[in-house]
Design a protein around this nucleic acid. Structure first.
Lengths: 299, 299
DNA sequence: TGGCGGCCATGCAAGCACGGTATCGGTCCA
DNA sequence: TGGACCGATACCGTGCTTGCATGGCCGCCA
């Protein structure tokens, strides 16, 4: 016998009796009669193998152990009290977590603005950040490992998306390069040496655009160079020029200069917020709903 | 409908399913069959008005809300897990609180030593301290407002007690007094002026002893002077001498000198730890038990 | 000091909630 | 397309818990 464990009825009964120090009143408070209460406390005492009350004939008094148990019981009941509300808030997206991925380049362009926008549209939601290249983001989105990605096109049809940022490309040249001098916009035809290229796997979008802009013959693909810092290091070393999103100019590298491109050669690249409509995360649902109603990012 | 509230069965069932992500295995873990588990989760979802699992046909998956509720459920169950043990420890006095009172004089003599002794005999028990004159301590002991008192005799028969400290009295004289000079022990017959006396209410024990030592005729009773600092202030002001427990010499007062008394006049006063055998505080019971077995305070 | 009232404990019968067995319905895979 | 797996449902039995009535104990008061 004994081994029987605690029940919430017992806890509630105990707290009521401990507060009233009177079975009758406690029972009344619980909309109960007195005998069940007596049995609840007896059951508790049998289970715990501890006397919780001193029966003095005229009312009861908490024992020291009873006082300790009272604190535990109150904490349990208080926790249980808030749990449903917290759960409901998580269910409707009022609170929650948004797992957000971004590309290394995206981080420079819009990550901060995007996060403040998310903070305004879904207050109470916290963001978890991961850096991933675009293809990995699509996979993670499909596997529900992330909720939102900041990706470059093309975007698979299964996802919903929103244009977040658009910028043109600029030319990065070594300071030793003839084009390093001057401030005017330059034309791609002025570039006589090779380019540092984007990896077609890691940065398919930029690879394709750059390849189209300058032709495959002069486009030196470096497998390593899907990371912009790496590309700038190669430019700096004099291995060639590179076409870089304008926002990356914020990253100043000694030995590298940036030049605008002629309007004729300018080509804009875009960054999109992207998510799966099937994703059950309520925080995402709430954000997506908000974005559908008002796609203006400034809001 | 709905209003029904949570049960621990439901919580345990939910946690099991959330961990196994499989009703059958969860049921097995709980020594249950699968249908009751289904009903428990359904009941939870109905009560919370929230979907906790996504049923995918092939197993289940936690929703975001389910994840939040899982944390709450785990915390509740963990609390409930430790409550019985904590309660039992409080019941056998392994942990708990000892409300301890002491006289102002007692604080100088033995409070620190007594506290370290208590700490050694009943580790895990914390002490709450109050300063009270002896009569107030006896009343508080009887009302179960304190657990242990450090008092002077006489001790009412209803209490259990233990001699904690014994010391003799010394003479406090103003530095302007003839007896302030010299280092030899002095005799009470050398004292030609009045004494500052103890209040018969606040310090009955010291009052009686001093009155017996020097005779009522030269014993100026000051109602205020049950507090030793007050008495020393009066001595310093030159209103008379005073008989003071030796431990108080630790309190140096400018304008007051202490002189030993002749062996013939020396009279020791005692301090006793005192408690009520009826006090149900298990921490006290444990201490009392320890003191009965081994009354040596040094232990 | 004996009766009385308040309070907690107990006996008993009824209601109900919970668990088990059997079965259904949907999804995935061969 | 049939079989296997998994969760949901129907139905039944049992055991716990409740409420009513009553017992036992202590303290109060006349």
């Amino acid at each position: 016998m004994a081994a029987m464990d605690l029940s919430l009825q017992q806890l509630r009964g105990f707290v009521a009796v401990a507060e009233e120090l009177h079975y009758g009143r406690a029972a009344q408070r619980l909309n109960l009669t007195q005998p069940p209460l007596t049995r609840q406390i007896q059951g508790l005492e049998r289970t715990l193998d501890v006397r919780l009350f001193d029966r003095t004939g005229r009312g009861v008094r908490l024992t020291a152990a009873g006082g300790v148990f009272l604190e535990h019981a109150r904490r349990v009941l208080a926790l249980l009290e808030v749990a449903p509300e917290a759960t409901r808030r998580a269910a409707d997206g009022t609170t929650g977590t948004l797992r957000l991925a971004f590309t290394a380049i995206g981080a420079y362009a819009v990550l901060a603005d995007f996060l403040t926008m998310v903070g305004k549209r879904t207050p109470g939601v916290t963001a978890e950040l991961t850096e991933l290249v675009s293809p990995a983001q699509f996979e993670a989105l499909a596997n529900l490992e992330i909720d939102v990605g900041l990706v470059r096109p093309p975007i698979p049809a299964q996802f919903e998306s929103l244009l977040v940022h658009s910028e043109d490309l600029v030319l990065a040249v070594p300071t030793s390069h003839p084009l390093a001098l001057g401030d005017r916009a330059v034309s791609l035809v002025d570039v006589t040496d090779d380019y540092i290229g984007y990896s077609p796997e890691g940065s398919q979008y930029l690879h394709d655009i750059c390849a189209a802009m300058i032709g495959m013959d002069r486009y030196a693909v470096s497998q390593l160079a899907s990371q912009v810092p790496t590309m700038l290091a190669l430019v700096r070393a004099g291995l060639g020029c590179a076409l870089i999103p304008r926002s990356i100019m914020a990253m100043g590298v000694e030995g590298v200069r940036y030049r605008e491109l002629d309007a004729a050669d300018a080509h804009s690249v875009t960054l999109h917020a992207c998510w799966s409509p099937d994703n059950p995360n309520p925080a995402l649902q709430r954000l997506a709903e908000s974005l559908r109603l008002d796609p203006h990012l400034a809001t």
